[in-house]
Nucleic acid binder design. Structure first.
Lengths: 330, 330
DNA sequence: CTGAAAGCGCTTACAG
DNA sequence: CTGAAAGCGCTTACAG
């Protein structure tokens, strides 16, 4: 690969001049510019990004941290972030932490060494402190979907309102014994969804039945197991609110395997409206979280932050939740 | 952030010595080493990666190209690649091309500028030439899942055998009118799966019925439409082989919406065994492609290639396909 | 075992 | 508008 001096030689100018036509900020004589451009083309010259960054430039790369790439809400998130990043000339590095704090630290240490201009974290949990250091040091970053306990830039859903919406709809359809299959409680959004469920029931004058509530369920396979337990109750629930679509799908499978039908015997409500919600039979009634748009927004705000174009007060963007009525609730 | 000279000053040595303890190849007096390490720790020093790479090092990053992040086979692929990359101290950059050759070129141009040591492409289609240049220039890369028309490093499934397996199983279960819902034909693997279907039918003495074959279907929504067409045939199929799980899921939905049952009225066979295959009702019978392992293998081979540890003859690794019998075929 | 020097490929004041 | 020089933060022969 040729370097800037090869180009300079071929064009009969100094490397400084080549650099100037490359960057386009400082005026260059049109004729010389022409010659330089021709030389660049002839040599198929690409500036060495490392050298540029070393001179104080930005690398135009964003690090995206996901707790688990197999979680099917993230494809849309990635797409929203990537599309926005590309629009601004940025590239996205995806890092999968598997909810492992040590792995996350390893990646952060690596990427901070000028390999990345900022971070987007979808990995926040209660009680992790290493992300707070970034805030102290003013390294650009933003939380997405999940937020941290401390006030920091974030783009999230109104999870409380979404859970209210879901529960109120089930109540409105005449259900009274509404079970909850919830996620891990050290992820704040599941606390919020739990609160929405509780408050909506209270508002409807329905007493909370602890037997109907199962926490710390992760995906569809343990969602299945949770539903098996609920079906073994002396008095079965007549509806189930699962706080993510895979958990809802697991519940549907357990109900069908028990010889019952959804929604005829038991109604099932999901959360997120991820792609699998439209792949199941019956089509899942759920609460939509606009992942693409949220990813795009977070990326937009991070880039503004990186490029120093914004006021530095941390701010939380809250997207509204929306009920999507399909076929799994009667 | 402090640099190597700060560390040198604090430790009372030269930057060269600091560099030497950092790299650990050249012996350093244990006492000085001690002092340097202490200084590094005290200053929380992290070497600037740009400078290191500029001096001729590797950046230890791999670029992964996906045709579409929303395709649900990729999470497992990413995980396999990431885990392997991490084991070797590499990081993974994921680029989503949306099957857009221009976008792909943009990313490649960007990343080649020393931001990446090699590429993994899951984006090969017939007739794209820009990837061949990389081969000419000896830039490390490997194809995964899809292969290119030219001989190049690749890790793929035995798609032909997989399609034979699927079709033979349907035939063995007594089906005779076996429809095919296939993907875009400019992706070679769908040609291979088509060939497997054809040959297996021929071997069973079943004549090919063009009315039962629909090509160029991408995902579950157009899989649904394809099935609607098949159901409108004067003589309906008694089984459907869809060459990906989402297409199979779309077909199941169309069958159920038409008031028929799977597998009682029509059997449905998928392909890939991606996560959604275990999320549907009935559980999908399909052909497994070991995505995690294939991703891991491709990553392993690419890194060997990057680090110059392998003989340079292009080689294609073919993984065997495996039938996974669940509930959607009777 | 260690330090001073050169250089990786750029950019940017500085001087003209 | 343009060139020569310095320097970004490292590493690595070279000399000791």
């Amino acid at each position: 690969m040729s370097d800037i001096r090869d180009v300079a030689k071929l064009a009969g100018v100094s490397p400084s001049t080549v650099s100037r036509v490359l960057n386009g900020k400082i005026p260059v004589n049109p004729d010389t510019k022409e010659k330089v451009l021709a030389a660049i083309k002839e040599l198929n010259y690409q500036p060495n990004a490392m050298a540029q960054v070393l001179k104080g430039g930005r690398i135009n790369t964003i690090g995206l941290f996901l707790p688990n790439v197999r979680n099917l809400v993230f494809p849309a998130v990635i797409q929203g972030i990537e599309d926005t990043a590309k629009k601004h000339g940025y590239i996205v590095v995806v890092c999968n932490t598997d909810e492992d704090v040590e792995k996350e630290k390893f990646y952060i240490e690596n990427l901070r060494r000028r390999l990345v201009d900022g971070f987007i974290f979808c990995t926040a949990r209660a009680g992790t402190k290493h992300l707070l250091e970034l805030q102290d040091e003013g390294f650009p970053h933003i939380y997405l979907i999940r937020k941290s306990e401390q006030l920091a830039d974030a783009v999230i859903l109104d999870n409380y309102a979404g859970a209210c919406l879901a529960t109120e709809y089930l109540v409105g359809q005449g259900h009274r014994r509404i079970a909850l299959i919830n996620g891990p409680r050290d992820v704040l959004l599941f606390q919020d969804r739990f609160a929405g469920y509780k408050d909506a029931l209270a508002k409807a004058g329905i007493a909370l039945d602890e037997n109907l509530i199962i926490h710390d369920i992760h995906s569809w396979d343990d969602g299945y197991q949770a539903m098996v337990k609920l079906l073994a109750l002396p008095e079965k629930p007549d509806a189930v609110f699962a706080t993510s679509d895979p958990k809802a799908i697991g519940a549907i499978q357990a109900i069908v395997d028990a010889g019952l039908a959804v929604p005829q015997d038991i109604s099932v409500m999901g959360f997120d409206d991820s792609d699998p919600a439209r792949m199941t039979v019956p089509l899942l009634t759920t609460v939509a979280q606009p992942f693409y748009e949220m990813g795009a927004k977070a990326c937009e705000r991070l880039i503004k932050n990186i490029e120093g174009k914004r006021n530095m007060k941390p701010k939380i963007d809250v997207f509204p939740a929306e009920l999507v009525i399909r076929k799994s609730v009667k």
